[in-house]
Design a protein around this nucleic acid. Structure first.
Lengths: 287, 287
DNA sequence: ACGGACAAAGAAAATAATTTGCACGAAGGT
DNA sequence: ACCTTCGTGCAAATTATTTTCTTTGTCCGT
């Protein structure tokens, strides 16, 4: 549990003075991590003991414990408050993207719906056949990634980014299969159509998408991914990184559920690679 | 610049006592971030003033400044020392994957070769046609991601994960084109062949791969990605996340170089999406 | 309206942590 | 052999933090 999460929870119950301290944390974070208790108290117009009490309230041992926790969490969590990169220099652009990506992961972690994920893993592991759908570049990448990750575990899976194919496949799917689809925006009408078709045929449907969106509403199970997109049109896509990580989580959980089968399959894949390439078995499972 | 990097640099010049302090930071980090100067000094068998001096040497104002910096950097940077996830519970698996992903980004950032990246962006922006190659699931994802990111900027690009096609395309490419290929392992012999073929025809080649590997050696420019893979065979792939981030960096830099063209293209793509879908223009550029 | 109970917050005192100034001793150069 | 420089610890001074005690204000019941 990190401090900002705790702060969120306690928010309502804070007193005036404590709220002023909280405001400083949120608005002038850089100051807060570097300040001494006296400086922080001064800025918030409260006395040092009040700051100590505030820290205790947030579950910290002492002020210094609080500062450490703050610095740890915030390095990642608070960066989204920062504006666009300072320049177009490679170093700045790189820093900006890495930071945004780490932040996307941080936000994903905080908002993960673990029970939906577990349910998803369960269904995928037991499915007789999996259809993974996604379109539009980003989600189509997710769909094929899903295939890439799951076929290695010995599961039967195909992916498609083609709307017509998706509809036909949805129509062909059977109740023991699973249809899983991704949509960053949640507004992929064709995917909604495929989901609806599948549900009519009692084929279970899983959506990786924004909660409350049309796609989410059309699916049996939704693994929500609700991240604020940056507003630079040139790279709207640290979200992709969060999706890829989510895929990893799901794939890992599936792997644990089908372990014996998976190990055997992986061994065969590896063997094939070694024979096919240069005999060096240090290489990854799939380049 | 983070503390551990500075520590690395100063390492040789440290005195005995200072080295003992450094050891504690490296080996018992958890203790170090939480300790007071007295506790830390005690454990290192030095006096508190020595610790203060040590902090100054590392570029910090004071001990407390040092602690803040330490806590900030280390939250991400030191996690790779941690072992495998505690259990197969969704929460633990999720935490493990998120942490590994963040760490991969951290390591990527630290090891980025910015000049190679800049050169790559420059070449891509000026290319008359771009061929993006990658195979084996992971790298094929990178290749099609590259296409996904760059066509939006108005660049001419195609991607292929098919070895035979790659060879034919390499043979068809012209000197003003660019061939860019990805290989996580650096041991994709077919990609090496494609690169060699292209170089013979004076087509510039760029590799995203492990430095020093066969693929790297076969390319004109290498953007090195050297990350230690985790050893859990079920998910060897936080590296993918680093590659995706690297792609974002490259794509952003390319975008800045072709800005007017890119803006126009993006506008047309967006318009097409709005018309094609439900008229709601809040959606992303490509789902 | 008054008084008691309680919570919030500050003042002052006590404690603890950190830094500074100084002196000593060892290593290395002249 | 002597001087210089550097690293170090000790003790004092400074500063930061916490504890304790007190005040203030608010809510409730009489």
């Amino acid at each position: 549990m990190d401090i900002f999460a705790t702060l969120q929870e306690e928010k309502g119950r804070l007193s005036q003075s404590e709220n002023r301290i909280a405001d400083i944390l949120l608005n002038d974070f850089e100051f807060a991590v570097n300040a001494s208790i006296i400086e922080l108290a001064g800025k918030a117009d409260v006395s040092p003991p009040t700051v100590t009490r505030f820290c205790r309230r947030l579950g910290c041992e002492s002020f210094s414990d609080f500062k450490v926790q703050l610095a740890r969490t915030a390095y990642i969590g608070m960066r989204y408050l920062k504006p666009e990169p300072k320049s177009q220099e490679p170093a700045d652009v790189a820093q900006d993207i890495i930071t945004k990506a780490q932040n996307a992961l941080f936000l994903l972690h905080r908002s993960l719906d673990l029970s939906a994920i577990e349910e998803t893993a369960e269904r995928l592991a037991k499915a007789e056949m999996i259809y993974a759908f996604g379109s539009g570049g980003n989600s189509s990448m997710i769909a094929s990634e899903l295939q890439n990750r799951l076929f290695r575990l010995g599961l039967r899976i195909t992916s498609s980014s083609d709307h017509s194919m998706q509809l036909m496949m949805a129509a062909a799917a059977k109740p023991k299969d699973v249809l899983i689809g991704s949509s960053f925006s949640g507004r992929n009408a064709e995917l909604v159509r495929a989901f609806t078709l599948a549900r009519e045929a009692r084929v279970p449907t899983i959506a990786l998408t924004q909660s409350g969106s049309p796609v989410a509403l059309a699916a049996d199970i939704t693994v929500p991914v609700d991240l604020p997109e940056g507003n630079n049109i040139y790279r709207p896509t640290s979200t992709r990184i969060a999706y890829v990580a989510l895929l990893d989580i799901i794939a890992s959980l599936v792997a644990y559920r089908v372990r014996p089968q998976a190990t055997a399959t992986l061994r065969r894949i590896k063997q094939q690679l070694v024979v096919h390439r240069d005999g060096d078995d240090r290489q990854l499972l799939g380049d």
